[in-house]
């Protein structure tokens, strides 16, 4: 049953990720990416991180992708010119190079690919619940957490200054 759920979400996420790349219109890419993020939220949930799965749906599929779609509607990008001429060979080589990259990345973790590489005793596993995440976030990681708020503030200011009309 777990395998069925995993392969379902994996297939959906890979298929929509391919759609993101091959769709010519940016709006369709954005919609495919939202579905991809939703499927990945399911995978996150299956990995026992409920809080991250909820954040994935709320922040990524919600806030960030809404921002993307707003900007796409705002700037109305025309159908892009796919790379022609000197850049066409990049598209041609992209697929075999991507397959090589996948194997290279997999080879980076040889210890996990052997037999019986599954997780050990699941009972001792710390739950990714809101309580546990919050306890770690506000004790051990409290300084990075506060620095994050400054980062967000600077990002807000930067976005406003950049997008402001200068007249």
């Amino acid at each position: 049953m777990e395998y069925v759920v995993f392969y379902l979400f994996a297939a959906v996420s890979v298929a929509t990720a391919v759609l993101v790349v091959v769709q010519k219109k940016a709006v369709y890419s954005a919609l495919a990416l939202i579905v991809c993020f939703g499927a990945m939220a399911g995978l996150f949930f299956q990995l026992g991180s409920q809080f991250i799965a909820a954040i994935q749906v709320i922040v990524y599929a919600g806030a960030i992708m809404v921002l993307f779609i707003f900007v796409i509607m705002l700037v109305d990008p025309e159908a892009e010119s796919y790379p022609g001429g000197s850049l066409r060979h990049i598209s041609f080589w992209a697929i075999p190079l991507a397959v090589m990259l996948v194997f290279l990345l997999i080879q980076a973790f040889p210890d996990f690919l052997g037999s019986g590489a599954g997780s050990r005793a699941a009972s001792a596993q710390p739950e990714g619940s809101v309580e546990n995440i919050a306890r770690a976030l506000f004790t051990q990681y409290v300084v990075p957490f506060e620095v994050t708020s400054i980062l967000i503030l600077v990002a807000i200011l930067g976005a406003i200054v950049l997008a402001k009309r200068s007249d």
Partner: peptide, 28 residues
């Protein structure tokens, strides 16, 4: 197993790399 998730992660990352290399639309 963890390996399944790692392979899926590698595949998705490679798809993203292909997109950055081949697409010319800055939003894409």
């Amino acid at each position: 197993p963890t390996a399944h998730y790692l392979v899926l992660s590698a595949i998705l990352f490679a798809i993203g790399v292909v997109g950055v290399l081949t697409r010319r639309n800055v939003i894409a």
